[in-house]
């Protein structure tokens, strides 16, 4: 899409090669992880003799076995579902709130706007992880008495608390995206007598799709990979807590962990690829409209 028509091919190859070189450690590291998941022991050096192919790790993983010989079985699908619920929840909350606030910061002048923006940036200085002491206390104070609600409440709380960590960043991002939309698009709507809320919903949101997706992607990843909040607040395990609790340097069967790690990466890769497509489509759509 970009400057396709006029781009010199020669440079492109140089850039691709340079990128490849820079990415080499990453490619190597993650390939070895995936390869190891298919081997009886971790493949860490380039010695082909250390690879002994087996599907055992994958079979064990899908059976929910956390060790090579017998032991405890866990419901790996349920754990994956928990992870997905948290990640989607965080993505939803973050995207909604930042799309609202980002618009007003970008388009409406009000007293305290500047302070609010600096405040949002500064909020990041608070180590979310250390703030967890306070967040935990709030959790304790609001914890439901009824046991039927506990599971649900813990999901809601972990989603909101984790989303809050992403909100300052996302609002800033979203504001940036709103800033790039020419004012004229909106003006026509306001002339027609529509309220700002209607303009935001009908005109701005469709234009801002790439931004919404970028923010949602980030929030999803944050929720998907969170460990500290999930471990402290969520009653049920997620993939991250499951893997973390079962990596023990001394006796964990690392190739099994490698398989679990590979699975953990899969949905996000799929999500990213589809989102990337959407991102581009909506962009070209937006510019024409």
């Amino acid at each position: 899409m970009k400057d396709v028509e006029t781009r010199p091919k020669r440079y492109e190859r140089v850039i691709i090669l340079a990128l490849l070189l820079a990415s080499l450690p990453l490619i190597l590291g993650f390939s070895l992880l995936t390869i190891s998941s298919l081997s009886t022991n971790m493949v860490t050096n380039l010695d082909p003799d250390s690879f002994h192919s087996t599907l055992e790790n994958w079979i064990n993983l899908f059976k929910g076995k956390i060790a090579t010989t017998g032991g405890i079985r866990v419901n790996i699908w349920r754990i994956t579902l928990n992870t997905l619920v948290v990640a989607l929840g965080v993505a939803g909350v973050v995207t909604g709130i930042s799309a609202l606030a980002g618009y007003s910061l970008s388009r409406i002048d009000f007293r305290g706007r500047k302070i609010l923006m600096v405040l949002l940036l500064i909020l990041h200085a608070f180590p979310g992880v250390a703030l967890i002491v306070g967040v935990y206390l709030l959790y304790r104070l609001t914890f439901p008495q009824s046991h039927d609600l506990v599971g649900l409440y813990s999901f809601i709380y972990v989603i909101l608390a984790r989303a809050a960590l992403e909100i300052p960043m996302s609002i800033w991002l979203m504001k940036g995206f709103f800033d790039t939309i020419p004012w004229e698009f909106e003006w026509s709507g306001i002339i027609d007598g529509a309220s700002r809320i209607t303009v935001w919903r009908k005109i701005m949101l469709p234009l801002i799709k790439p931004g919404v997706l970028a923010v949602a992607l980030f929030a999803f990843l944050a929720g998907w990979q969170d460990i500290i909040y999930v471990r402290t607040f969520l009653i049920h395990p997620t993939l991250a807590t499951f893997i973390e609790a079962n990596i023990e340097a001394e006796y964990s069967h690392m190739p099994l962990i490698a398989a679990a790690g590979t699975v953990y990466l899969l949905p996000t890769i799929i999500f990213f690829i589809t989102a990337q497509q959407l991102l581009l489509q909506s962009y070209s759509g937006g510019i024409k409209g």
Partner: peptide, 29 residues
């Protein structure tokens, strides 16, 4: 930005891996 979209996409995905990995797995790598 300056290379074709397919190559660009795969590189972006590759460089997103560190952020997507659970910290324990990433550290293991």
């Amino acid at each position: 930005f300056f290379i074709n979209e397919r190559a660009a996409s795969s590189y972006r995905l590759l460089w997103l891996l560190p952020r997507m990995s659970p910290i324990a797995v990433y550290s293991l790598v």
